[in-house]
């Protein structure tokens, strides 16, 4: 799958410090692809990406996701002290259970925060935060 990649004039939120494992994850996201990892030895799937399979310690491989999932839990943040988040209140933070199994954290947009429910079907899109960084976001299907 390749999901929508939105662009913004200026990214003012925190950026990931790319490391040996995360570089490929953020690069793929900047191209509209959501990656998790799967272990070739034991089949375990995991997010966030790591240098080992947390189940059996083998070297994991990348697995491209469908980009669909459902909201496992969430909150509506109504108070936050620092910019730029302070200017965007209220907003929704959620754990999304991916079709592939693992849970991923994200923000849910394109919906009235008061209408968000656990179990709601959502799909990923990305915001390009830097040349080599896309940030996954979620919206109702």
């Amino acid at each position: 799958m390749t999901a929508e990649v939105r662009t913004v004039e200026e990214w003012t939120k925190p950026l990931p410090q790319l490391d040996g494992v995360s570089t490929e994850y953020w690069q793929a996201a900047s191209e509209g692809r959501l990656l998790i990892q799967q272990c070739p030895k034991c089949g375990h799937k995991q997010w966030y990406p790591r240098a080992l399979c947390t189940a059996c310690a083998a070297d994991p491989e990348w697995l491209e996701c469908s980009g669909r999932g459902e909201i496992h839990t969430f909150t509506v943040v109504r108070q936050y002290g620092a910019k730029p988040f302070r200017d965007e209140l209220p907003y929704v933070i959620a754990m999304v259970q991916l079709e592939e199994g693992p849970m991923i954290m994200g923000a849910v947009t394109d919906i009235d925060p008061d209408a968000v429910r656990i179990g709601m079907a959502v799909e990923v899109y990305f915001v390009k935060a830097a040349d080599d960084v896309g940030i996954p976001y979620w919206r109702p299907v």
């Binding site: 990214w11 950026l15 002290g81 620092a82």
Partner: peptide, 13 residues
């Protein structure tokens, strides 16, 4: 309720 990260900051780990 906030101030953990500053805008534009690179966050490691």
């Amino acid at each position: 309720t906030g101030g953990f990260q500053r805008a534009g900051q690179r966050v490691a780990g």
